[in-house]
Design a binder for these strands. Sequence first.
RNA 1: GGCCUCAUGGUCAAGCGGUUAAGACGCCGCCCUCUCAAGGCGGAAUCACGAGUUCGAUUCUCGUUGGGGCUACCA
Length: 479
Amino acid sequence: MEKIRTRFAPSPTGYLHIGGLRTALYGYLYAKKQGGEFVLRIEDTDTARYVDGSVQIIYDTMRDSGIMYDEGPDVGGNYGPYVQSERKSIYTEYAKKLVELGGAYYCFCSPERIASLKDEDGNVRYDKHCLKLTKEEIEQKIANGEPYVIRQNVPESGTGSYHDLVYGDISVDYKDIEDGILIKSDGMPTYNFANVIDDHLMGITHVIRGTEYLSSTPKYNLMYDAFGWERPVYIHLPPIMKDATRKLSKRHGDVSYEDFVKKGYVKEAIVNYIALLGWSPKTNTEKMSLAELTESFSLDGISKSPSIFDETKMRWLSGEYIKEMSDDEFVERGMPFFKESKVYGKYDLKKIASLLKTRVEIFSQIPEKINFLEEFDKYDLALYTHKKMKTDLEIAKTVLPIAREKIANLKEFTFDSVHDAVMETVGELGMKNGQVFWCVRVAISGKESTPGGVMEIAELLGKEETLRRLDFSINLING
RNA sequence: GGCCUCAUGGUCAAGCGGUUAAGACGCCGCCCUCUCAAGGCGGAAUCACGAGUUCGAUUCUCGUUGGGGCUACCA
């Protein structure tokens, strides 16, 4: 059997959003699962929409996310060039060939004449006016420098049918398809033409793309047939939605891969999550590496209905990845955010990492969780009142001086020794553990909640700072 | 408007004629616990609607409603 070849063909019109990345991912998974090849092609035929720098973003995003292509503009391959704007002469050549084959024709109609074709609903439908032109007339007009486009010659009757691997059999009547423009007046091809030529020339066996092409595929098939080329296998993918009625789009804010990485999401989690948006392995496994996804990927798990992007679930998944990291890895990968925090350079980040791993889902949460280690000032005394812990300000007044002395007397200041000191306080006062621990923890943190408890915090702060904070708090509660 | 297409909890989803309709996120409760997490246990919540077909429809057919897409010298 021939080797599977899939491609991802984005337009460089800005950043690569989650929907596009998922299309790329499925193309990658499908090819890799079967030992095939995955190709990146840049579709930049619309010069007006081109955004500077976006090609680089595409390269970077794919590399960073691990969705790596075997062939592409920056890695080469035997089917290049992989950028459509560099293939202009190829399209011209094939367009002429298609004209000769009767599958397309030159059109010299002015925009004004096209506009005059509007029906009562305001829809324009080209009337094949220029199809009637003789070869001599066409040559004369071209020689005169008249601007022209090349249109596809779609049959006026009949039905175009094909089988999509996700959606099943699709049929569209040719009478509902217009003679679309294949080559624009600037000489560049439209997507409608370039995708066919390139997919064929690049040996693409399986075309994986969004459902927006589901109903226009018959007209592409017309071209494959006219050229006598084998039609590729089609796999159309349902859209990813922002909500029930809006598709995820570049206009809707933080939906690009790079934005999520900047927000501190674990990148493996982003890929993992989008794989699950519109596809199910049909098992109860959700956390999967790229290799595992490749292994279990199968077309029958692709759903036909649109799915809504749920950042909350992706966040949870990111947290799952973080929990499994070693302390070293957490420190390394969370470093940009440690650097943003106030504790950077002053504490043992590995120790902090062990406290943070179960408390953080995205790295950007790091600073807010640990800044209290460097920020300590007057706090609300109401913190000492906690019903469940059975504590209040009066109890704190009793507890803190004693705990302070026990801690001050410690010759060795360690997790265990601090624990012993606090427990001695508990025993001496005959209180509940919670009453003492709560008060001490509030006294050295000034926070209602902290990552870790008394010992963990004290250990990080060190004896001197712990005592300084205890003194500060004793002072504070005594007015 | 025409054409294509989709429809299981709030969200992602399994299901593919007979099930107590999985699982996950989120939410709520309990346990654990010096806080917050993590972890454990439990709970609420779904087959859009209407006709068929069938002994029996979430599952098959048709329709309705609702959503998405196409209908560009955008992809």
